[in-house]
Amino acid sequence: MNNTTEHTETTAPDQVLDQAQEPDLVLGHTSADGTTVVGSRKGDGVLAALRGTGVQWRATRDGVLYIPRSRDKAPYRYRIEQAATALRELGFTVSVEIDGTPRDAAQVRADKHEQAERRAEALDGKAARLSAASSAARATVDRISERFAGGQPILVDHYSAPKAFRDRDRMHAKTRQAIDLDQQATTTAWRADAARTTAASLGNPITLARRMATVQTDLRGIDRELAGNVRRHLDGHGNEYMRTVTKPAEGAWRTQLLERQQHLQAELEHSRELYAEHVREGRAWGGTVADIKPGDLVKTHNDWGVVVKVNPTTIVVDTVHMAGLKRPHFEIQDHRPRPAGDDANATAGNTTT
């Protein structure tokens, strides 16, 4: 498919713009930036109007509005047209600029890794600040409580009673604050660990193989929509009781499908290159499922097991820990054919790694 690039400028039907006049807002999409709106000002109602379309738009510190998780994806043209219509109804002139060309897949992966590491670092800093604030609140509680250290009760009729009651209330408030801050610090530390896990998983061959399988499934679905298809619905006896006919995609929907197909194909090609590198360096299995037979040994999740059954997309294995485990093909890490003369019913407990 050829790269799809559109640059259009549209105004409200009842307005005619001078060609030299700049639009109030620029609504666009690129792979590098995602779907954005540039030109909005705080309090102009643009963000509320965009969120009124059912999409959770957000704003950067620089005032650029954007759709989360729209970077390095094909433009969602229906959402973009919805946003343009909502903005024009507010009286703004809007320029719509869409570039559906995907970025280099290697650069996309590198940017995701860098973003995950930056997120983990930022969350580590936030967790440290929250923990320090919690410790400070506890220190304040300890300092205030010194007046009650000897078990001195509050003398209700004494002149010191009002201050004692205030100190007691401050201790309760600071204790609650310390607990809340400590819980926030713990949650933030978990989020930092999750970001580090995300960064590490980008180079994991099993994660890569799983993503490749998902992309291939999506591409087959796009091919069916582009070509059209007929689906036969059968009952329990194999008799057809309904037929669903899907016509080939047309117009804007076809354009969007072609753009998404282009993005997915670029990702798949790069993923195959990375997986081939894992295979060459011995970090991933490079065989084919056709070579696996019942009784063979396979390694999944760093655990060896005996193959019981080979299905089109999964295998069933018996391991020393559990029998009848079903694993998808992309989780196979290694394979050893059953030696000639061995009993096909050998158990995984006799397997060595």
Rank of each mutant, 00 (worst) to 15 (best):
A290M: 03
S271F: 06
H335Y: 04
R283N: 12
V316E: 11
E277Q: 15
G287V: 11
R280I: 04
Q262T: 08
K293E: 12
A252W: 00
K326D: 06
T313C: 00
K326I: 14
Q265R: 15
A266Q: 09
G286V: 10
R280F: 04
K299I: 08
A276T: 12
L325H: 04
L274F: 01
R260M: 07
H263I: 02
Q333W: 05
A276N: 13
R254Y: 04
V320P: 00
V316C: 03
R327Q: 14
R272P: 00
R338H: 02
P337Y: 01
V279F: 03
K293A: 13
E331G: 01
Q262C: 03
G305C: 07
G282M: 07
A276S: 14
K309H: 12
D318I: 05
H329T: 07
G282R: 09
R272Q: 15
H263R: 07
R338L: 15
A252S: 11
G324D: 09
E267H: 13
V320W: 06
M322V: 13
P337T: 05
L264M: 10
V298A: 02
F330D: 07
G282C: 11
Q261M: 09
W304K: 13
K299Y: 02
T255G: 13
P337N: 04
H301V: 08
P337M: 04
K309N: 13
K309E: 15
E277H: 11
E273A: 13
Q265W: 02
R254A: 15
G286D: 11
E331I: 02
R272T: 09
I292L: 06
I315A: 02
T314Y: 07
A252P: 06
T288S: 15
W304V: 12
L264D: 03
G287L: 11
V307E: 03
G287Y: 07
P339V: 06
N302Y: 13
Q256A: 14
L297S: 12
H263K: 11
L268M: 10
D303K: 14
P312K: 10
T314Q: 11
H270D: 15
R272D: 05
H301A: 13
I332P: 00
G324H: 04
W285E: 04
W253L: 08
T288Y: 01
H270S: 11
G251E: 05
V298M: 04
V310R: 06
P328Y: 12
T288G: 13
N302R: 15
Q261C: 01
R260T: 10
G305H: 05
Q333S: 09
G251N: 03
P337E: 11
S271G: 13
L297W: 05
L274I: 13
N311W: 08
R338M: 15
D318L: 05
